[in-house]
Design a binder for these strands. Sequence first.
DNA 1: CTTGCCCATAAGCCCAGTTTATGCCCCCAT
DNA 2: ATGGGGGCATAAACTGGGCTTATGGGCAAG
Lengths: 323, 323
Amino acid sequence: MGKGVGNEVGKVAGKVAGMSEDQPGVTGSLAHRVPDLGALELLLAVARLGSLGAAAREVGITQPAASSRIRSMERQLGVALVDRSPRGSRLTDAGALVTDWARRIVEAAQAFDAGAQALRDRRDSRLRVAASMTIAEYLLPGWLVALREGRPDTAVSLHAGNSAAVAERLLSGEADLGFVEGLTVPTGLDSAVIAHDRLIVVVAPGHAWARRRRGLAAAELAVTPLILREKGSGTRQVLDTALGGLARPLIELSSTTAVKAAAVSGAGPAVLSELAVGEELALRRLVGVPVEGVSLARDLRAVWPTGHRPTGPARDLLSLTRG
Amino acid sequence: MGKGVGNEVGKVAGKVAGMSEDQPGVTGSLAHRVPDLGALELLLAVARLGSLGAAAREVGITQPAASSRIRSMERQLGVALVDRSPRGSRLTDAGALVTDWARRIVEAAQAFDAGAQALRDRRDSRLRVAASMTIAEYLLPGWLVALREGRPDTAVSLHAGNSAAVAERLLSGEADLGFVEGLTVPTGLDSAVIAHDRLIVVVAPGHAWARRRRGLAAAELAVTPLILREKGSGTRQVLDTALGGLARPLIELSSTTAVKAAAVSGAGPAVLSELAVGEELALRRLVGVPVEGVSLARDLRAVWPTGHRPTGPARDLLSLTRG
DNA sequence: CTTGCCCATAAGCCCAGTTTATGCCCCCAT
DNA sequence: ATGGGGGCATAAACTGGGCTTATGGGCAAG
């Protein structure tokens, strides 16, 4: 067997000056080292069905194509993934692990797909949703994936904006269901709490606050320049209220992502929804700073025009968000 | 402006009989609806750098290639992603959202890549890790990504197995650092607790237990047939100990994934690490059942041969896992 | 020992994504 | 005002990965 890696794939594609792309090690963008989605889906199908041929049929290609694709994936990764026998194929130990990791990529792709589809549908959709940025970013794609499983032919359209924009779309009849994250419910709307969120103060691991054990007081937070979302964002509103209207920006950025990036790079303390920083906290790229006597909790709410209790698709989606 | 979508891309590629692939709706596998990793990376670069050309340089392609690729991504998604101007390109609102979703795919791909690379390196690696399945599956890829950021040229190899296998590799000198999830530390090894985990009882939302408010007692759990990992797995050991050695299997499955799938499909209650079911709980595909008077907590530990305190790369990795 | 399911190999096709090679637009500095 | 430089678009030609069809060989069960 052997790995048979006598290949000379690279061949130094560009004669261009630019890039230095020759080390054998960890070079070449992700896309060159990670199989594409089609291959990963195929692998999942093989894992589930126990046969290359059956998996091929499921994803709509022929058996030789599946065989070759799995094989080239094994070559690419340098790891045997499946044990082929005349009676079927089973994953190797390494294959099982790879498959589990692959599943996470595929799940992220499903969320992407569900979201993107909602962004497009605009017109003829049976359910028009308006959501605040944080919710649209972190929660909604998952809900849409779940909705698609339960009600495969509900076409959903999505519009993201701040609370005011959500309210406006609902009241003008441009949206059927909204999601907001502020402290107050815009007038003219009814609401139901669907989840709880909390803002947390985060710093890069090197920051002095990273080792703090005693909670920060409101006063202290108020006098410290912070990396913040822009005024008008739900996040900012909650913080301003909690501190008594005087959060002091070090910089104002217009997206959660930008705030995270700035915080990770050590620019200073940031205040963000815990939804946004789960991964970063787990990997210790950011550290949470305890706070004391400041209420940074906030409710996430579904909202709809007063009186128009959600029905049909809107109710379906709503029931997925909390029960 | 308009979308300028006069395309007739499809052109019904295959003359083959096979597939019926014509409905405009939600057909065609994910891979056809989600841009490939290269395109997503390019999009992230555009978001960060504010220019197609600069992004192109960063990912190592030419400007026209980048332009065309972004454009075909926009066509594929049916959404304008970037505002092109003679002075650069900025994301549209929709583009910003899409980019955030794309980032999650790319991050999953990075974890996959780091893991796969470790599976391959086998030989000449400077750090040889042995880990239990749950840790290898859920935690390690993230650590490896972080390690790669901090120490780009640490080649890591990974071997996954149960606690006994981890211990064996460490003691025989085939591994430098191990991670286990059992209750007891194998003899001959020193350890440090790096995180806490908890087993939880989960059921499909339709199950009677899903609406339970009072905690399950050990006795009740012990007499109920459960979906479980096989004997010998860390998960199973903890459960058996907690119940007094008598967990009653409804089915025994050899992977966490299989257990999850069975539980989601409503086969019965399952007992799993909370690491494994985060996503499922959030989306309510599974519901946690409260337990009472049963200690299902367990420590996750790093382990190494007694006396050989981790140094060098092993210490680097260790310090990422908790501090 | 034949039928069915499995996988592998071989040869040829096709399209997506690239690369060069241009051209236009806008801003800024000279 | 006038060139220069950064930025984007379009066009034509090349390449290769992945697909399909067409086979062949192993193993099990009727």
